[in-house]
Structures are given as C-alpha cells and as structure tokens.
C-alpha cells in the first residue's frame, strides 16, 4: 500500500490539518516509509488466528443503566472559546 500527493492532501483535509503544498510530497514519502514498515506484518502467517483485541485477557465491562453523571453545564462549557446561555456557540453552520 502506498499513498500519493493527492491522497495526502485529502487525508489532511479530512483531518482538518493545514498542510502546505510544498510539504505534501515529503509527507507522502514519510507516510509510505511507515506503511512499508507496517507492511512487514503481512509476512506473518495468521490463517485461523482470531484477531487480538486486547493485550490482556479481558472482556468488555457492562454498566448498570442509571443516571450517575451530568448536571454540570457550566463545567462542561467552561473551556469553550465561546458560549451563551448554557450553549456552546460556533460560527454558523446552517445548510
């Protein structure tokens, strides 16, 4: 697997990361080096081996359905750059 300049531009945009046009080519080289390195894993024979989802033998923890959190609107919105009347506010995003 390898990525070209256009793919890098697209990924950067999807991740909302500003990347200068001049940096796209070197970045794609770097990414391809990483991808090649990871690609080595493909050499391992994994037929019939279940995917490993955790480093330790454990299962998903289930929670009881009860209200045990929330109720602190001020705390939640405190770090936001802008807010009004308990809401977060952002530049208009109307369709």
């Amino acid at each position: 697997m390898s990525v070209d300049k256009d793919t890098v531009r697209r990924i950067a945009h999807l991740a909302r990361i500003a990347v200068d046009e001049a940096d796209l080519e070197p970045l794609s080289d770097e990414l391809n080096t990483i991808l090649d390195w990871v690609e080595q894993l493909g050499e391992v024979q994994t037929d019939g081996v279940a995917p490993m989802t955790s480093a330790v033998e454990t299962t998903l923890r289930w929670r009881v359905d009860e209200v045990s959190d929330g109720g602190y609107a001020t705390r939640v919105t405190l770090g936001a750059p802008e807010g009004d009347d308990g809401f977060f506010t952002v530049p208009k995003v109307l369709e």
Binding site: R63, D65, V67, D69, G70, G71, A73, V76, D85, G86
Partner: peptide, 27 residues
C-alpha cells in the same frame, strides 16, 4: 429507551436545560 446514555451515566431525558445532561465523556 434507557435511563442513561450508551457510554456514559448522564440522563437521556428530553427537553432539559442546554448541556445539563452532559458528562465529560459526552463532551
């Protein structure tokens, strides 16, 4: 239909004050 959210313990009730049913997980 549940009392609390899928991955946090804040309430699912409809029509409450803005951001009053938000945990740090939901935010």
């Amino acid at each position: 239909t549940s009392e609390s959210k899928l991955f946090s313990g804040s309430s699912t009730e409809f029509g409450s004050e803005p951001n009053s049913q938000v945990s740090l997980v939901d935010a």
